[in-house]
Design a protein around this nucleic acid. Structure first.
Length: 715
DNA sequence: TCAATCCGTATC
DNA sequence: ATACGGATTGAC
């Protein structure tokens, strides 16, 4: 099951305190100056320190003057080992843990209890799942305070009645009746879809996987998700949706606000800045907003009476938090759904292998469209492997497009906008080895080689600028280079010449366009930056497929398929002459797109991983650091696992492949060891990894290592 | 015998 | 991390 390794009682709250220790307590209380509160004078505080062995509550005395404000969940300042640290009050208790004197709380930072018991439990479970510290998780979960906002808000703790008006007002809104939500909705296209919505609106907790067929219009994914949210809302519960980026968030927000009262919806994303983020966070705490939508850290939003969690496009690696312990929003939401007894919807144009695993364990049920409906809803997809060099039409050669692709674009432009998906941004084309097609790497720093701008013929490194005069392929020993994927600007320019008189719009990098109009323009976008076209694209060309597939990453295939479907879902249905042309050699990935079969691809991919015993068929931990530290850590962990009869399959230690500019490189030669273990043992293994790390940190018997669980980028 | 130093350990 | 105590070592 998902949360097989959930909820170790990390914050082990002692059941009883030894009487002998208690006897000394009243004396100390009197001798230590300040008078502590009469009732529950002890506050258990989780201090904000990322030291793994300090990740537990410490007891402080509550000065009588702070008795009212020092409630569980508030942020406090305490003296800890001589320094001032900030932390959260976890609970108020009558007696301290053990026989030592209590320091008083230094200060209550704010009387707002920003850490609810539910989120504390969630953070505890996430820390256990990822062998990290609760403190690190809380740093992500609770947004930074903006003091000014607390003055204007009604006392957050008295929230009870405030939530009712919003919910009732929503139900009274016309067009928001149950019949509308479950009947004339896009969900009717999916077998079990109406049943899923009905179950939700009746207060149930169904768990579903959905691959929406459309990325635009009223049957597009934002509307499907919004209707699920509305159904949960209708049952009197709250909902939470996490999307990978702000563009998706904008689309979702429009759809959700079309169905629910505007102030019932809170938008949470770091990009909006601290003030609106904290404002919306406070609205959720107070219960005035019942639905949270946002990017990855919104998975921790304090939604009251949570009835539904939704993760959109979980295969997008933006869902992975960049701070320790690197939790994936999908996993956070799964833990949360289990803890809250909430419904769960995992939706995306494709199905990730992780979700496929959940389908196969029976944890979620697919909500799928009949083949007939699929065929009616999606564009026609064709593959062409022919080369532009053989094309007889000179314009096709100028556009550097294969003949079939060029003709599809030309015909598409008669009917509407045409999308061209290309591999990466930038005018500078990257270089690959002519014989093995591996990306050419710099001999000095392993950075990517490129032809420098300004017409210089000498390839040079894009990181360190070293000219590659005597280049040799580190992979196969080849000595000749050829151009790899061509950048958008260049593609756009060439396409413009191939389609004289047509408008060319580009979307890439930091110039991403959210949407384009229905006009007959050519839209060149890098992978993932495709604008939504009003009314859908007439055609899409998916170029550079082979170079996407060639990435030496365990997930290259899965990720490429995801990006193809995300673009293809923006194209009109075949019945409306929608056409997708893909230029890639025949593979299972291409086959999945031709048949429009994301579940089939996920099944196949997961069975391959199962055969090889690679994630997500098994779980992994990567241990990175100086060789001695890594070896010490893995040996210690193995020793601790021995008594439990667990022995881990390991790979490495191997030198870490540097994937970043030299400036971000760490001094010393780090190595990495991978540990593989089955889900059934995950709880025991993560517990041991955490304990091992705490022990090495406390004793400083070795340098610290970076510990990362289920990182998708390490293989 | 005392002080400077090292090492290990707890931090409410 | 960092401050503290107990042990260890070196010099008077």
């Amino acid at each position: 099951m998902v949360a097989d390794d959930a909820a170790q009682p990390l914050l082990d709250l002692p059941a009883a305190v030894q009487p002998s220790l208690l006897q000394g307590f009243p004396d100390r209380k009197q001798q230590s100056g300040p008078k502590f509160a009469g009732h529950l004078p002890v506050a258990r505080v989780l201090v904000e320190s990322s030291l793994p062995h300090l990740d537990r509550p410490f007891d402080y005395g509550v000065p009588a003057s702070l008795d009212n404000e020092a409630q569980p969940g508030v942020r406090v300042k305490v003296k800890f080992n001589g320094q001032d640290l900030s932390g959260f009050i976890i609970e108020r208790v009558a007696e301290p843990d053990a026989g030592h004197s209590l320091l008083p709380l230094a200060k209550v930072v704010s009387p707002v209890p920003v850490l609810t018991p539910e989120i504390r439990d969630l953070a505890t479970a996430v820390a256990a799942r990822y062998a990290g510290t609760v403190s690190d998780v809380l740093r992500v979960a609770v947004p930074p305070r903006v003091a000014r906002l607390e003055k204007t808000l009604p006392a957050a703790r008295e929230s009870g009645g405030a939530q009712e008006p919003a919910a009732e007002a929503a139900l009274r809104q016309p067009g928001n009746t149950r019949a509308d939500v479950t009947g004339h909705s896009a969900w009717a296209d999916y077998r079990n879809g109406p049943a899923f919505l009905r179950h939700l609106s009746e207060g149930g907790a169904p768990r579903a996987v959905l691959n929406p067929l459309r990325g635009f219009g009223t049957s597009g994914w934002p509307h499907l998700l919004a209707q699920a949210v509305a159904a949960a809302f209708e049952s009197g519960r709250g909902a939470l949706v996490v999307v990978p980026d702000n563009r998706d968030l904008d689309l979702l927000e429009d759809a959700v606000k079309g169905l629910l009262p505007e102030d019932a919806v809170a938008r949470l994303t770091a990009e909006d800045g601290p003030t609106p983020r904290y404002q919306n966070f406070l609205h959720l705490l107070a219960g005035t907003a019942r639905v949270a939508i946002g990017t990855r850290s919104a998975a921790y939003a304090p939604v009251k009476d949570l009835g539904l969690v939704v993760c959109w496009d979980d295969g997008d690696d933006l869902h992975i938090e960049q701070r320790a312990p690197y939790a994936h929003a999908r996993e956070v939401l799964l833990l949360r759904a289990e803890q809250a007894g909430a419904a769960c919807l995992l939706a995306g144009h494709t199905r990730s292998t992780e979700v496929q695993r959940l389908v196969e364990t029976g944890w979620v049920l697919p909500v799928e469209a009949e083949r007939g409906i699929v065929r009616r809803s999606v564009p026609r997809v064709v593959n062409t492997a022919d080369s532009f060099e053989q094309e007889r039409d000179p314009l096709a050669r100028i556009a550097r497009l294969p003949g079939a692709a060029w003709r599809a674009a030309k015909e598409g432009l008669e009917r509407g906008p045409v999308l061209v998906q290309v591999a990466r941004a930038g005018y500078v084309p990257s270089l690959v080895c002519e014989t093995c097609r591996e990306p050419a790497r710099c001999g000095a720093c392993q950075g990517p080689l490129a032809l420098a701008g300004g017409g210089s013929a000498v390839p040079q490194c894009r990181w360190c600028s070293t000219p590659a005069l005597e280049w040799g392929c580190s992979h196969c020993g080849g000595r000749r280079l050829r151009k790899g994927a061509t950048g958008v600007m260049r593609t756009a320019e060439e396409l413009g010449r191939g389609f004289p008189g047509k408008t060319v719009i580009t979307s890439s990098g930091d110039h991403v366009k959210a949407s384009v109009g229905p006009g007959k323009s050519l839209v060149v976008a890098t992978v993932g930056a495709e604008p939504v076209a009003e009314g859908g694209y007439a055609a899409a060309l998916l170029l550079d497929g082979d170079s996407l597939l060639r990435r030496e990453n365990l997930r290259a295939g899965e990720d490429t398929v995801r990006r193809w479907f995300n673009a293809a879902a923006l194209v009109r249905p075949a019945s409306d002459h929608g056409l997708v042309v893909i230029t890639a050699s025949e593979t299972s990935a291409v086959g999945a797109l031709l048949r429009w079969d994301p579940p089939g691809y996920a099944r196949r991919e997961l069975s391959l991983r199962t055969e090889l015993q690679l994630p997500p068929a098994v779980r992994i931990a990567s241990v990175t650091g100086p060789r001695a530290a890594v070896e010490h850590f893995t040996a210690a962990a193995a020793a601790h696992l021995q008594p439990a009869g667990i022995s881990l399959r390991t790979a490495g230690p191997a030198p870490v492949l540097l994937s970043g500019p030299p400036s971000s490189r760490r001094v010393g030669d780090d190595v990495r060891t991978l540990l593989f273990f089955p889900y059934a043992q995950a709880a025991a293994v993560t517990r041991v990894l955490r304990a091992t790390r705490a022990a090495t940190a406390a004793k400083r018997s070795a340098e610290p290592v970076q510990l990362r669980l289920d990182g998708v980028d390490v293989l």
